[in-house]
């Protein structure tokens, strides 16, 4: 019951925060100099053309009316048309989002699994060579500059060795082949995913490893572990069945927060690998003054972060009975 009260309170908060972000975002875009029409350097665009476009895009109206439409559009779930693509924003995001989700959930979960596993080993061998190697290794991969790593990956594995496609998500040979079924197509996507996935994995797993290691070390000092030891249970059982599940809790938090980071890093990873996802689209729309698209993508990101924070907290409360709200 407490959990319900807590959840609903948080939900209300989220709505308020979201509204604030919504407004700040609107103001930011309107305060900025330049508009989508002024970006066009085209010598064929006459001032009259530009004026007409401004009027038709509704940008000539007072700011508060625009704000009203903005809110109305938002509440009705209709985000308007992208200035650049001339298509409904919802459609564009709908196109891009699955790609982002696919790449990032896979990479985060993969790195979390490996991080948990290796973190467990590191903590078990605390102070030994294994631990040092793992920790230093994790630190090194975790702090490598992401876009640079991505470029090196492309250079080595895609260009020099030619094992993987250079960029993109699918290859036209497979997708244009009428005989290709679901399986070859999935394999094709996976093949393209390897490099971005590995890059993201390398960057991420280190942090999970470190969290897991620390958390595990703390858990091992808990009373119930001592009790289990006293009972004479085998170390392996204690480690895998008693300590690890609880120690992995902070990793869950981190996974949730990583969703936020994934969008952040998404801009870089997707740009370098030309992954047709939401991060790349955001960078693009922002630099093209495509307000509706940029606003919607940003709001989406904020929403994902807010909700994932909430989910993490609830999950945490559910999983760890020590925490009560």
């Amino acid at each position: 019951m407490e959990l319900w009260i807590y959840t609903s309170r948080r939900l209300v908060q989220i709505v308020i925060i979201f509204f604030v972000i919504l407004t700040v975002l609107f103001l930011l875009f309107r305060l900025a100099p330049g508009d989508p029409v002024s970006r066009m350097v085209d010598p064929n665009l006459t001032p009259e053309d530009a004026q007409l476009l401004i009027e038709e895009l509704g940008l000539d109206q007072p700011v508060w009316i625009q704000y009203f439409y903005y809110l109305k559009n938002f509440l009705t779930g209709h985000f308007g048309f992208s200035f650049h693509y001339g298509r409904p924003v919802v459609q564009i995001i709908g196109d891009r989002l699955p790609n982002t989700i696919l790449l990032f959930t896979t990479s985060i979960i993969l790195s979390a699994l490996v991080g948990i596993f290796l973190g467990k080993i590191a903590s078990w061998h605390k102070g030994e060579k294994t631990d040092t190697c793992l920790t230093v290794g994790a630190l090194v991969t975790h702090t490598v500059f992401l876009p640079w790593l991505a470029l090196i990956m492309i250079w080595v594995f895609a260009y020099k060795l030619g094992w993987f496609p250079i960029t993109g998500m699918i290859s036209e040979e497979v997708w244009l082949d009428p005989d290709a079924g679901l399986w070859p197509k999935s394999v094709d996507i996976l093949h393209h995913m390897v490099l971005p996935l590995t890059t993201l994995f390398l960057i991420h797993f280190g942090s999970y490893l470190l969290i897991m290691r620390t958390s595990m070390l703390e858990t091992l000092r808990e009373d119930y572990i001592l009790t289990a030891r006293a009972k004479g249970l085998p170390e392996k059982v204690i480690r895998n069945h008693h300590a690890a599940p609880n120690a992995a809790l902070p990793v869950v938090t981190s996974v949730g927060l990583s969703l936020a980071f994934s969008i952040n890093g998404g801009a870089l990873t997707e740009t370098v690998f030309t992954w047709p996802g939401i991060g790349r689209e955001l960078v693009f729309s922002v630099s093209h003054n495509d307000y509706p698209l940029a606003q919607a993508s940003f709001l989406l990101i904020a929403a994902v972060v807010l909700v994932s924070n909430l989910v993490v907290d609830i999950l945490y409360a559910y999983l760890d009975p020590r925490i009560r709200y």
């Binding site: 959930t105 699994l113 069945h241 300590a243 690890a244 609880n246 999983l319 760890d320 009975p321």
Partner: peptide, 16 residues
């Protein structure tokens, strides 16, 4: 807490 009551997070993540 009793360790058996907790969901194994690893298997949870594997599921995802």
């Amino acid at each position: 807490m009793s360790p058996t009551s907790s969901v194994t997070i690893e298997s949870f993540l594997k599921g995802i």
